Simulated scan of single mutants.
Amino acid sequence: MPDVKPTNGLRQVAATRYVTPFREGGSLPGLVEADDLGMYVLKFRGAGQGVKALIAEVVVGELARRLGFNVPEIVLVDLDPALGRSEPDQEVQELLKASGGRNLGLDYLPGSFDYNPVVREPSADLAARLLWLDGLTLNVDRSWRNPNTLLWHRELWLIDHGASLYFHHSWRPERFPAASYRFDAADHLMVPFAGPLAPVDAELSARVTPELVREVLALVPDKWLAKDEAFGTPEAVRDAYERFFAARLAGPRTWVDELEAARAARV
């Protein structure tokens, strides 16, 4: 098996074969084979939301992993646009051509399928933890219509965090009301099953330390962060994300009260 080089703590592989698109997602992710002989769901830098979605995938996915959730391995995938030459679908061809360089991949979980909590009800604790995580990271894309969770080997796995941290698509250094960013949990997948938020909030907020946040942010490639013209340098962008999490976790956390109100209304 070829050597796999670590980069920023995430493994780096090279795509060797484009297999098929996944048309369920708006960004048209695709299944690729890489030079480590693994199969990955590739998220393209040339898709509509660009590298900001990839940054959110790394930050939220790796934060979730450190909080005990199952998340497929996240890798950095180098893509040669020449892989698109034999692709008959013009939309896919253009996406591959626009995504040369470093993209993001998630380990493909063969045989997995969309998680349905009605079929396999989550524990009240797990549901509350996931609701809290999505409230912290402003993940607006985990609903009944689009669960972004998989069932694999009888366990729940989290995927597709590109819509999280939505503020970074238009943020400015002088405008940062992180504590009050709106998160509507009424349609969240886990609201009907979640237990009380207070004990979960006490535990998880203590675990998301500044050191943990910096550890996760260090995994994001500098080249992706450097594209953010609002802050100038990759370290300045990381500092801005740190300020977001610090403000989001500072007390009183009104967003947790709002989560609890949404949960209580469904009990």
Rank of each mutant, 00 (worst) to 15 (best):
G135C: 04
A240Y: 06
L136D: 05
D36E: 08
P252I: 08
N139I: 07
A15I: 09
P177G: 04
G111H: 05
Y18Q: 01
P177L: 01
E94Q: 14
L151F: 03
A186R: 15
Y40P: 02
I74G: 07
Y241R: 01
A98M: 01
K97S: 15
L126V: 04
A128S: 02
S170Y: 13
G48I: 07
D160I: 07
L136Y: 03
N116H: 03
A127K: 02
E155M: 01
F176K: 13
V60P: 04
W171R: 14
W144D: 03
F69D: 06
D134H: 11
V4E: 12
A98K: 14
D78W: 06
V59C: 02
P192Q: 04
E33I: 05
A202C: 00
W132Q: 06
R263V: 11
W255D: 12
G101E: 08
G26I: 02
L37P: 00
P199D: 09
L204K: 00
R120G: 01
A265I: 01
S164N: 05
P173Y: 01
V256H: 08
T16D: 02
A236G: 10
G100W: 13
A264G: 02
N148E: 07
G135W: 02
L259F: 06
R129F: 08
D78F: 03
E258F: 10
N103V: 14
P234F: 10
S205C: 03
L219H: 02
A262I: 07
D3R: 12
R266F: 02
D239Y: 00
H153R: 14
D184H: 08
E235P: 00
L104K: 12
L106G: 14
N146F: 00
P177E: 03
A230T: 10
A127E: 05
A218H: 05
A178G: 08
H168A: 09
A194Y: 12
A82K: 04
G68W: 12
E57K: 12
P192R: 11
S164W: 01
D141Y: 09
P81K: 12
L130H: 13
A53K: 08
E211Y: 00
E235F: 04
R253S: 06
D222A: 14
V118A: 07
D257M: 03
V13T: 08
R214H: 06
T254L: 13
G68S: 09
S99A: 10
P2D: 13
E229K: 14
L31W: 04
E211I: 00
K227Y: 03
F244D: 11
A185K: 09
A53T: 11
A265Y: 01
D80H: 11
K97Y: 12
